[in-house]
């Protein structure tokens, strides 16, 4: 490095800078334009009776192992709080109803299909996609199993296969992508005997939710869970009890990936900050090197060592 003249330094440095700017145009956060008619589901927990047919239908539709349909009438499973796992993309939990103890509240849990999903923003390889129709789906051909989506998801929905080493799956509700392609309703919505699940355009579903609350203010709390939570979700809930008492996290209305993406894009704004830093450091290095080569005795504390080192080293020391 010592025997380098100024011109070749500049030449190589320029090559380095241009190499690092390559691809700057490729890394950009692609904004998905959401369809105005994107889909949504309203879960009316006051209507749901906890029959768990949706759990059976979901397992069947996704080829997950399931017990016989009759066994789903057994309501002893409600004794413990359950979450989706590798065997179930959706589960129903039961909560006490203080207003009417004979009619406990049932809450179905599945992926909320966020309007601005944290998992999609977080995924290292873009294995999770937000579709125009509103659904959020996972691509097993890309996924590396890092589980960052699980860290990012505010609803703690994606689950992981901890028991296999080869081809472990990230599992979550896919809004029955395959069924909808054939013009069918999502399996859970299709089977629900009480119409506790209302499928439609998100905007229509939201209207229905508002009407129901307006019509029966004595039944419902005035809160549509999912209307604004972390920027809004495709699945929305109405209930007769505060949502935090139904073990649904109290979340703000700003989109989950917001701050993280802002920082990320700030650091990487078209690669300007890294390239600037590179150039600055390069200039700095070159100026200091020249100054030192010209007159080592001017540089305060290290002059002795510099001279000594120059004597006993033969050119290269890195």
């Amino acid at each position: 490095m010592k025997n380098l003249d100024r011109r070749s330094f500049l030449k190589v440095a320029a090559a380095g800078v241009s190499a690092s700017t390559l691809g700057a145009s490729q890394v950009k956060g692609a904004e998905i334009k959401l369809d105005e008619n994107r889909i949504g589901v309203l879960v009316d927990t006051a209507v749901c009776v906890g029959c768990r047919l949706c759990e059976w239908a979901c397992r069947t539709a996704h080829h997950l192992p399931t017990d016989a349909l009759e066994t789903y009438a057994d309501d002893s499973v409600f004794k413990e709080f359950r979450r989706p796992d590798k065997t179930a993309l959706t589960v129903v939990n039961e909560f006490e109803n203080e207003k009417n103890p004979l009619l406990p509240i049932h809450v179905k849990t599945q992926c909320m299909h966020c309007e601005k999903p944290a998992c999609v923003s977080a995924c290292i390889v873009g294995a999770l996609t937000k579709n125009q129709d509103g659904s959020v789906v996972w691509d097993g051909d890309k996924c590396i199993g890092c589980r960052y989506c699980m860290v990012a998801c505010q609803f703690q929905i994606p689950t992981y296969d901890y028991d296999v080493s080869i081809d472990p799956q990230i599992r979550k509700c896919d809004f029955c992508e395959d069924r909808r392609k054939e013009g069918l309703l999502p399996a859970c919505v299709n089977i629900c005997p009480n119409e506790a699940l209302i499928f439609g355009k998100r905007c229509d579903v939201l209207k229905i939710a508002k009407e129901r609350i307006k019509r029966k203010p004595e039944v419902y709390v005035n809160h549509i869970y999912g209307e604004n939570e972390i920027g809004g979700t495709s699945w929305m809930y109405i209930a007769s009890k505060d949502f935090d008492k139904l073990k649904m996290a109290t979340l703000g209305s700003s989109p989950a990936p917001g701050i993280s993406e802002a920082i990320q894009h700030g650091i990487f704004a078209y690669f300007v900050p890294p390239v600037t830093l590179y150039t600055l450091l390069g200039t700095f290095m070159w100026v200091l090197k020249r100054r030192k080569e010209k007159s080592p005795e001017e540089i305060g504390d290290t002059k002795k060592e510099v001279i000594e080192e120059k004597k006993d080293e033969k050119g290269e020391e890195l």
Partner: peptide, 21 residues
């Protein structure tokens, strides 16, 4: 990472929004 044999995926599958990427 669960699918360790796909560790090279980030080289060709990019997500500029992801801090992990």
């Amino acid at each position: 990472i669960g699918r360790f044999y796909y560790i090279w995926h980030p080289l060709i599958m990019w997500n500029g929004n992801s801090a992990l990427f």
